[in-house]
Simulated assay, not measured.
Amino acid sequence: MLGVPVVAVALAISGCQSNGDNLDLAMLVENVEPADALYNQGLANLNAGRLSEAAAKFEAVDRQHPYTEYARRSLVMGAFTQYRQAQYEEAINSGRRYVQLYPTSDDAAYAQYIIGLSYWRQIRDVTQDQAESRRTIEAMQEVVQRWPDSEYVDDAQQKIRFARDQLAGKEMQVGRYYLERREYIAAARRFRNVVEDYSTTRHVEEALARLTETYLAMGLQSEAQTAAAVLGHNFPDSQWYSDSYRLLQSGGLEPRENRGSWISRAGALIMGS
């Protein structure tokens, strides 16, 4: 079956040469190897740590034997190899392509997991943009929701928690920036985001303390007292609570929860409740 395209290429070369074109035969004729041989060579290279060679073999399977079972396997292994090489955008693209082509296959969850891992590896410090944290959450939530019984769910959930913690940390960083500049409304909005949207992260404790400080500076005593009360209820041994308590006492106040406040409602969702 391979003879027909080779003859066709030979005729094309002959015609071009008669027109004076100097073509390199190696550029037109690719040495086609069996799909299983290429795939096994890719695995061998991968196991030996020769990642570039492995990637080349997996790509050759996909190129030379498209839509075969070995091409399917090579696509997901190629995504993994790209991830190992820190070629994250390439790994994401390969993973997406796999999920689109083979959404019901056994390896679809793994391909989606590779997408999430590739975003997770690119998460930056909280002082920088957190777009990759959001993308990590989206990608890993796909793993959890679409393949709830897969072996990758537990780690996907851990990565989601980490990324959410990063987003909360970013909100706190910006909130502290505004608080230092006495831009209290902007600061309170950021700390409120943490309490309402990231109540199970480690940053909620400080967020409540900062709300106590911010609301007190704004003259909103009831809200400040409620923030401190919710903080004390959830984290009674916290240094943040001790500091907030002393701050209120310095103004002749004490923690007192207003059940009608948004802080009281949000308090029911905090991890310490």
Rank of each mutant, 00 (worst) to 15 (best):
C16F: 13
K57A: 10
E138R: 11
A35W: 07
N19H: 05
A86D: 14
H65K: 02
G20M: 04
A48V: 08
N22G: 06
Q17V: 06
I123M: 10
A60K: 07
S264P: 08
R190I: 05
A209N: 12
V195A: 11
S242A: 15
N22K: 14
A224W: 00
N31H: 08
N22F: 05
R192W: 01
G232T: 06
A108C: 07
G15S: 12
Q85T: 00
E90C: 01
H233Q: 13
Y113M: 04
D165M: 10
L43R: 12
Y119L: 06
R135D: 13
R72Y: 04
L167M: 09
V7G: 03
R121W: 01
D107V: 02
D243K: 15
Q239F: 13
E142M: 05
K159Y: 09
D155T: 09
R265A: 13
A227K: 02
V204H: 05
L51P: 07
Y39D: 01
Q239W: 11
Y110G: 06
Y67L: 13
A163S: 14
D129R: 08
Y39I: 04
R182G: 04
A227Q: 00
D155N: 11
D62L: 13
W120Q: 08
S242I: 10
E205C: 01
Y152V: 00
Q87K: 13
E59S: 14
P66I: 06
G169K: 00
A54V: 08
V194E: 12
R190L: 05
V99S: 08
S199E: 05
I270N: 08
W147K: 03
Y152T: 01
Q239T: 15
I92A: 02
M140V: 04
L75N: 05
D106R: 15
D237N: 14
L179G: 02
P66C: 10
A54E: 04
I185L: 15
G116D: 10
L211H: 03
A48H: 07
R176W: 09
N31E: 15
R84A: 14
I185E: 15
V230P: 01
G232A: 09
T127H: 06
Q85G: 03
R135E: 14
G95P: 02
S14R: 11
Y177L: 09
A10Y: 10
D106H: 09
L75Y: 04
R97A: 13
L25K: 12
L220F: 12
P5T: 07
T212W: 04
L28P: 08
C16K: 12
Q145A: 08
A48I: 07
E183S: 14
L23D: 01
F162R: 11
S261M: 08
K170M: 12
